[in-house]
């Protein structure tokens, strides 16, 4: 039992070690290693050992993104005030914490994605895990928003809210990568304004009353 536990810890360390070495390589060289073979050689590791943890470089990149969102959620939830937040504030808090986490990896992310023109049109494969975790988080927030009526429950459309928030996330990622303002203040402003818009759109609005009336007139004809 004890032995197993130890083994697990070691397994985890080895995994983190590979991720760190990979990130380090990218930072030093400004690009990916040429091949897994060359990469593990510099690590003093056998290639087959590498495959115990990762299948390719893409899965390492994916791990970096997943670590970012895991740390974001953990950091955000550790703030006491978080539990008192409304859905809108939770979303804001998520993005603010996210850009703080991203900052720790800025050089790495820049060398990987600076030339990447549009996250929206061409979502990098390695964001898949990140996306799943984000969707799980945003689904909770949306559910909560519906419960306290911050968010209007509209048939068909409300199923797409998560997708809309994901697009917003991509927009923020891209905006942050290009942001050159001191302290990334402009990203803060972009977050504040775009979340505000998203929740205004999702909230109950004149449109709902209009649809309601239209439905009534149609039905009572």
């Amino acid at each position: 039992m004890e032995n197993q536990e130890e083994n697990k810890v070691e397994l985890k360390d080895r995994r983190t070690e590979i991720v760190e070495a990979y990130v380090h390589y990218v930072l030093e060289h400004g690009r990916e290693p040429v091949s897994v073979f060359k990469f593990v050689k510099s690590l003093g590791m056998k290639e087959e050992e590498f495959y115990e943890y990762f299948t390719s470089f893409a899965s390492i990149k994916s791990a970096v993104w997943e670590k970012i969102i895991d740390d974001t959620v953990r950091g955000m939830e550790s703030q006491e005030v978080y539990q008192e937040y409304s859905a809108r504030e939770k979303m804001l808090s998520f993005y603010f914490t996210l850009v703080e986490e991203l900052k720790k990896h800025r050089s790495y992310l820049l060398s990987m994605y600076e030339g990447h023109l549009s996250f929206k049109r061409n979502v990098p494969m390695e964001l898949k895990g990140f996306k799943e975790k984000f969707k799980a988080f945003s689904a909770d927030v949306i559910l909560e928003g519906k419960e306290n009526e911050e968010i209007a429950d509209r048939s068909f459309i409300s199923d797409r809210y998560e997708d809309a928030l994901w697009l917003e996330t991509l927009f923020i990622l891209q905006y942050w990568l290009k942001d050159t303002s001191p302290g990334f203040e402009k990203t803060d402003v972009a977050i504040e304004k775009s979340v505000s818009l998203a929740f205004d759109l999702m909230g109950k609005s004149a449109l709902d009353s209009f649809l309601d009336l239209a439905k009534f007139i149609y039905q009572s004809k």
């Binding site: 937040y85 504030e89 808090s93 603010f96 977050i191």
Partner: peptide, 8 residues
Amino acid sequence: LSYPLVVR
């Protein structure tokens, strides 16, 4: 400003 931005 929203409160999360104040915190930030």
